[in-house]
């Protein structure tokens, strides 16, 4: 995967979670993922389909982090991973994807819209659309970690 693809996802993630989630995510050193096991307990995943590239993007949150983010978003304490939090992770995935796609458009890559899927539970499996290498960007917050995963196959 071309490394120029990862920065738009990092930028969009920081923008979404700081603007609406009330946290300040600090990106750590990216690495390649081995296997398909999730890093977090709740994951949002969305397809990225375009003429120049295709693949998928996922964001996987620790429970402590996503509980804080969603509580901040809604202005009330939430704890139910199956209800409010699943829905919010879908919207967060959507917003990060939209922001990253807009930045990638400026680099000459255009992607269609898609609807995200949400998975919860410890050690769940994340299946990306292509079998290309998956770049993982870990993030730290004051309320726990989360990771962003991007897997894109380019035609350029």
């Amino acid at each position: 995967m071309n490394v120029e693809f990862i920065n738009p996802f990092i930028n969009a993630t920081v923008n979404v979670l700081s603007t609406m989630g009330g946290v300040s995510p600090r990106p750590q050193k990216p690495h390649l993922k081995n296997g398909s096991r999730s890093y977090g307990e709740v994951t949002g995943i969305i397809g990225l389909a375009g003429k120049e590239a295709k693949g998928s993007f996922a964001v996987s949150f620790s429970k402590s982090c996503i509980v804080k983010v969603v509580s901040n978003m809604l202005g009330e304490e939430v704890e139910d991973l199956e209800g409010d939090i699943m829905d919010a992770v879908g919207e967060i995935t959507n917003m990060i994807s939209g922001g990253a796609r807009a930045e990638l458009e400026n680099k000459g890559y255009s992607f269609e819209m898609a609807i995200p899927s949400i998975i919860s539970g410890k050690d769940h499996k994340i299946v990306h659309i292509t079998d290309f290498p998956i770049i993982v960007v870990p993030f730290e917050t004051d309320h726990g970690p989360f990771v962003v995963e991007a897997c894109l196959k380019t035609g350029k």
Partner: peptide, 27 residues
């Protein structure tokens, strides 16, 4: 109010008669 920040999307909405447009995330 949408996550779709691509220029062509905004233009399409304007052409369809949208009154205003906000890109998520927003304050």
């Amino acid at each position: 109010v949408t996550a779709e920040a691509k220029k062509e999307n905004i233009l399409e909405a304007i052409q369809a008669g949208v009154s205003n447009y906000i890109v998520k995330p927003f304050t």
